[in-house]
Design a protein around this nucleic acid. Structure first.
Lengths: 215, 215
DNA sequence: GACCGTCCTATACGTGTGTATTGTCAGCTG
DNA sequence: CAGCTGACAATACACACGTATAGGACGGTC
């Protein structure tokens, strides 16, 4: 479970950092419930007691991981979105950032009931909503649903990809976190997002039929 | 955690069925690891030993739930997709079926490593792939990615919705399993699937740039 | 009535896991 | 050197949970 992106990148990190990295990997892979402090300690090459010495409890260790990921995300966003308003490139980049190893942790944390991850989810919904309202200005007819609903759905769907990476990799016969799988996911998302899957006529008709639910 | 759609619908079900329904609810809500046999027994109103008497072990209980859901899905598909080839209505219906309470169990089972759920995932990918190849015949330029990649991505994204129902409901300030939330999800999906989010030009340009990864 | 199988409960056992305690060693400071 | 502090290990404790066992209540069959 490699270390987190750049950084020292060596195993001569401080023990606390090694424990945190190991915890990030275990929580992302096994989930909070199935991950064990002993397993994390073993991956970090330290004793069980040291984990407790540095973080106090399993829940506190989770919070430390949450805050670390949140801080890393903040820095990434500041240096990435600093140049100009959200455009298509920003949207595509945001979708693809779902592949970032740290994001895999956040996706799993959402399932495991992390409040920090929930806040990050809400933030992503807000950003997507802003993007949508700008894009809606170029549309003719009004959307079938408000921007917030669509933003929440798009966000949830994006998170679904790293969440189901195991099954996605199996269906593609390639690890989606590897270079080839990453390429196919990127191109697949580009195609899906750039081409409508159903016709606008059918959607409009479906909307009309939806307000009369019981024929 | 209501009983499964139609059926007897009352609490005068056989104890075995009540245990299974309770297990479906607990597994879907807490996941396999955090769900406890004692909690399931309590929800079903039976003793701990009876669960073991009927199902043998926790893993066997999970398999029984898997097979039950698989059989229910098979019947649903037979009576639903019997009439004609896949069309837009079938696609929309399949997307919306992600809201079905039983599907919530499958979504969670995918995260928890159920082999039965994995098979259902692969089946969904296959059906989506068939749908896509038919639809690709009406497209001008070739897609940016093969149908299987796109099918797997669409499937994973659809599963993401029930998986993140908690956060989705919070973002929408409405329970997405309730009538109002269900409506907003349906309309939101219709709009997303019927309108491209990014321009085809940008997507094509992005594809071209993707083959030269390091500028 | 006697026997038997099924549904069901109560209780006990073993183990994995989070948590707590204690102890050791290195480094620093007076 | 004495004394203290923090990093770290080893061990023990408490508890929840899956599993196993023993037994009772009820209905059917001979």
């Amino acid at each position: 479970m490699a270390t987190t992106s750049q950084g020292p990148a060596f195993e001569d990190l401080t023990a606390r950092a090694r424990i945190r990295d190991a915890a990030l990997g275990h929580f992302a892979e096994y989930g909070f419930a199935r991950a064990t402090i002993r397993g994390i300690a073993q991956s970090a090459g330290v004793s069980l007691g040291l984990v407790r010495h540095h973080f106090g409890s399993k829940e506190a260790l989770r919070q430390a991981c949450d805050e670390y990921v949140m801080e890393a995300t903040r820095q990434y966003n500041q240096q990435s979105l600093a140049g100009g308003p959200p455009d298509e490139a920003a949207f595509a980049a945001a979708s693809r950032s779902a592949m970032h190893p740290l994001f895999r942790y956040v996706a799993r944390a959402l399932i495991d009931g992390s409040v920090t991850a929930a806040n990050m989810f809400d933030e992503m919904v807000g950003m997507t909503e802003q993007w949508l309202v700008r894009r809606d200005q170029d549309r003719g007819e009004p959307p079938l649903a408000d921007a917030r609903s669509r933003a929440a759905l798009i966000t949830a769907m994006a998170v679904g990809i790293p969440l189901l990476h195991e099954h996605l990799s199996r269906a593609l016969a390639t690890d989606i976190f590897g270079p080839e799988g990453d390429r196919r996911v990127a191109l697949g998302l580009l195609d899906i997002y750039s081409h409508s899957l159903i016709s606008a006529e059918y959607a409009a008709a479906s909307q009309a039929a939806f307000d009369k639910p019981h024929p």
